[in-house]
Structures are given as C-alpha cells and as structure tokens.
Design a protein around this nucleic acid. Structure first.
Ligand SMILES: [Mn+2]
Ligand SMILES: [Mn+2]
Ligand SMILES: [Zn+2]
Ligand SMILES: [Zn+2]
Lengths: 147, 147
DNA sequence: CATATGTTGCAATTGATTCTCAATTATTAT
DNA sequence: ATAATAATTGAGAATCAATTGCAACATATG
C-alpha cells in the first residue's frame, strides 16, 4: 500500500499546491501513533520533538489531509474536534465509556445493510456514516456497584 | 404525558434549583417547533417575539434541560452545537444531505441489536447511541447528474 | 537562475461558550 | 407578610478553538 506521504504528494501535485517540510512533519507525527488526536495535542507532540510547526499550519493542513482521504474528523468533545488517520485502516465506529472516557473501536457489518436500507427508503446516495455508542465499561460498572 | 414544563419544575425542585420565567420561555420556545436548533437561532426566535432572555441564560439553561431529559445535543456543525427536544419523541437518528444539508430523521430497530451485541462483546453497559448518516438526497443526485 | 505563486509564523480576529459580578428574584423560614 | 438565604439574571469581560491578514520565505517550473 502506498505510504501516506506519497498519497499526500500526489494530492498536492494534482491540486497544484506545494508540499513542505512542515506538512510532512505533521503527517509523520499523525501516523506515528494509533490514537485519536486533537490539534493541541498534535501541536504539543511536535514541539516535544523540537519540530516547530505553528498551530496555524496544523489547522491549515488538516483540511488537506481530510480532502486527500488520509484523516477524518471523529468527534467533537471537550469543546473541540478530534481526528484520526484512516489511510489503510478499516472503517470503524466508537464505543465511549461515559465515566472514564475510554474509547473502544469496533466494526459491525450490519451497519452496511442499514445504510443500504436507508438509501433505498429515502432515495439517498449514501456516502458514509458515523456511529457513536455510549455506555459504561467493565471497570466503571464495577466501580459503580462498589459504592 | 406530562408536559415538559411540569417535568422541568419537578427537576428543578428535586435539584433545589429555581424555576424562572426566563427558563419557562426558553422551554416553551424550544417545544414550539419540531426543528433542530442552535443557541443563536433560539435566542433570535425569542427576541423576535420580544421575549428578552439573554444568551447567557440560554447557555445556562440548556444543560439543565439536557439533565432533565427534555433536550439533547444532536450534532456539531458549522462551528457550533445543535440541539433538539426529545420529550415524548421516539429515539431517532439523522440522515444528512452533504449538498443541500437537508436532514431526514429515521429509526432503525436493528440498531438495538447492534447495541446488545456490543454490550456483550465489550462488557459495556450501553446507554445510548448516535448514528449520523451522510449522503446525497434525491434532488441533489439529480442536480449532480444534470451537470 | 528567475518568476510566479503557495506557504509559513505571528499576531490579530472572529465566534462560541463560559465566567464574573452586582442587582434581582424565588424559596424557606420566621 | 417579612426577612433571610441562596439561586438567577443580564451585561460585559474572559477564554478558547479556529480562521485570517500579512510580510518574509520557500517551492515548483521553465
Ligand atoms: Mn477511531
Ligand atoms: Mn432529530
Ligand atoms: Zn470506563
Ligand atoms: Zn440535498
């Protein structure tokens, strides 16, 4: 599978934009971890490695990464957006613990048929979906009982 | 079914808060329409009716309405949160047209079994879910073809 | 190498949301 | 009813995420 940097270079070329070291650092940092991230976090991670990229550049790069299919918005929480990289990953949804805020990723093939049914029923051309499920994880359920 | 004002009064009493004319105006306005709303919209709707409630009060009341189960956050779009009233309504999810931004509400009983399966699989006590589906509506599909 | 144009960092700006505070008001106890 | 207590209000200030203007700089192209 083509590495994400290549994908981005192609995208940039096609759009007649320019690739820059800053953008490559951002991509590298995003793909160096499997975690969801937010802008501030990403900015701090880069700083820690003494790679100075301004927040403005991060904010400006994210939409390009989304357009090129490398990254997607996952959810809005704590007053800001959270993202994840998706290149080469299977589509998945998220199960959130309402107490400890742990996030479990899952896939469910039944969502496909829900999509199909919806498309037929409402005459929509369905492109994607986002399912967030909320509950209490095993540990937090135990804690609750303990009280 | 108990009217929402009653529910709110009970909630307020139980929590040793206070009910106020401002809060009742907000509730009345929210329930006077079936549409999703955002804070600014709600604020303007109230102003138009010459019912002056400050934005601060709206921002302060929404969490109370959520806690009392009358309202819920639906999605974050255009840089701010959108809400809807849910008292006496069936749970439903949203189908968004990516072009004209029309929103269709739908229900799908299969989501229940997805929830159950998830709960078992990950040992979660599932409380709720939020499914947003994206695509192009009938009209916008036609327009696309037309081009 | 020269040019045209995109990109950067910084600081200022915008917009949503929260907070501070003094004045007001609802609730509860005399 | 009246007073005491504590919550709520509106206005504006403050905060925080996200965007933008701009001058200096960097990249792609010929
Ligand atoms: Mn994920
Ligand atoms: Mn709805
Ligand atoms: Zn938990
Ligand atoms: Zn449409």
């Amino acid at each position: 599978m083509k590495p994400e940097i290549e994908i981005f270079r192609d995208y940039v070329r096609k759009k007649r934009l320019r690739n820059t070291p800053e953008r490559e650092l951002i991509i590298e940092e995003i793909f160096s971890s499997q975690n969801h991230f937010d802008i501030d976090e990403l900015y701090l991670r880069l700083r820690e490695k003494n790679q100075k990229v301004s927040k403005a550049s991060i904010y400006r790069t994210i939409p390009l990464l989304i357009e090129s299919g490398l990254v997607q918005e996952v959810f809005f929480e704590d007053g800001h957006l959270h993202y994840e990289h998706i290149h080469g990953r299977e589509h998945h949804c998220h199960l959130h613990c309402l107490n400890c805020r742990k996030i479990v990723e899952f896939q469910d093939r039944h969502l496909e048929s829900i999509e199909k049914r919806l498309g037929r029923k409402f005459n929509f051309d369905i492109i994607s979906h986002k399912l967030e499920v909320y509950g209490y994880c095993e540990e937090c359920r135990k804690d609750k009982r303990g009280r």
